[in-house]
Design a protein around this nucleic acid. Sequence first.
DNA 1: TCTGAAATCAGAATGGT
DNA 2: ACCATTCTGATTTCAGA
Lengths: 150, 150
Amino acid sequence: MDEIDINILKLLQKNAKYSLEEIGEELKIPKSTVAYRIKRLESLGIIKGYYAQIDPNALNLDYVVISLIKAKYGKDYHVNLGSKLAELPGVWGVYFVLGEIDFIVMARYRNREEFMRNFLEKLMNMPEIERSNTQVVVKIIKESPNMVIW
Amino acid sequence: MDEIDINILKLLQKNAKYSLEEIGEELKIPKSTVAYRIKRLESLGIIKGYYAQIDPNALNLDYVVISLIKAKYGKDYHVNLGSKLAELPGVWGVYFVLGEIDFIVMARYRNREEFMRNFLEKLMNMPEIERSNTQVVVKIIKESPNMVIW
DNA sequence: TCTGAAATCAGAATGGT
DNA sequence: ACCATTCTGATTTCAGA
C-alpha cells in the first residue's frame, strides 16, 4: 500500500465509474498499471466491492431513527440481542458500545406506521432489553459512510 | 418507478458491476432496455452514484466512535454546530435529533491519539456545545448503510 | 417508452522488460 | 512489479416500432 494505491482508492471511493484511463491520467501512470493495482486491491480485500448508492428519499424512506439500547445483564444476552437487532427490517447499523448504553441502532422506514410495526413493537417484545431510547432524526446533516480516506 | 426499476436498483445496490446483459437475463428484458432504465434512474437522481466499498479495517480504522451531543440554547447555535461537526476529519455521519440529545455523530479513526487530536480536542473547543457523551464502539455488528431496498 | 443492431469504447489478457 | 499492445466484451448510440 503506497501513495499510488491510496490515490486510486481515493478516486474510486468518490466515483467507481472513473475509467482506468482517467485514473491513469490523473495519477500519471499507464492504464494497464492502474488495472494491475486495482486487481491487487480487490484480491487483497481492500476494495470489498462496488455498489450503486440509491437515494433513500426517492423511496420515501424519510422516517430515520437512531435507538440507544441498554441490555439486561445476563449470560449471552448481549450476543443474542445484537444479532436480533441486526435482523430487524429497516435496520442498517448496529454498534456495540461501552458505558451507559450497550447498543446503538440505525434504521430507516417509510413512515411512522412502518416504524412502529417493524421496529418499536418488536423492540418492546425483546426480553433482553432493559430500556431503550429511540430518537427520530429531524435532519441528516451528513451521511457518507463510504468515505474512508480523506 | 415500477417493479422493473425496483429490481434493477436491488441488483445495483448489491453489485454495481453487474453487466447490462446479466441484469437483462435476470429480469428477462433486453439489455438495451436495462440501459435505458438505468440512465433514467440516474438522471432522476434515484441512483446517486457508484462507489467502491473500501474496507475500513484494511486502513486500520478500527477506533470507531459515536458521539451524543447537546447544544447550548441560542440563535443559530444548532445550524452552526451541525456544519462544524460535519467538517471534522473522520466524521462520516451527523444526525440532528429531537429530545435530550441534539446531534449524533459517527466517526472513524486509526487510533486513540488520532481520535483525541482530530475529534475530542476540537469538540472541547466548540462553544456551542453544552455537553457531549462519546461512546467507543467495541464491535460493529452490522454496518450496511448503502442497503436501502430489501 | 421500448428494443435490435451497429458502432464505439473500456477492461481483460498477453507477453516483454 | 510494471507497462504497451492486442483482444474481447460491455456500453452507447441510433433508428424503427
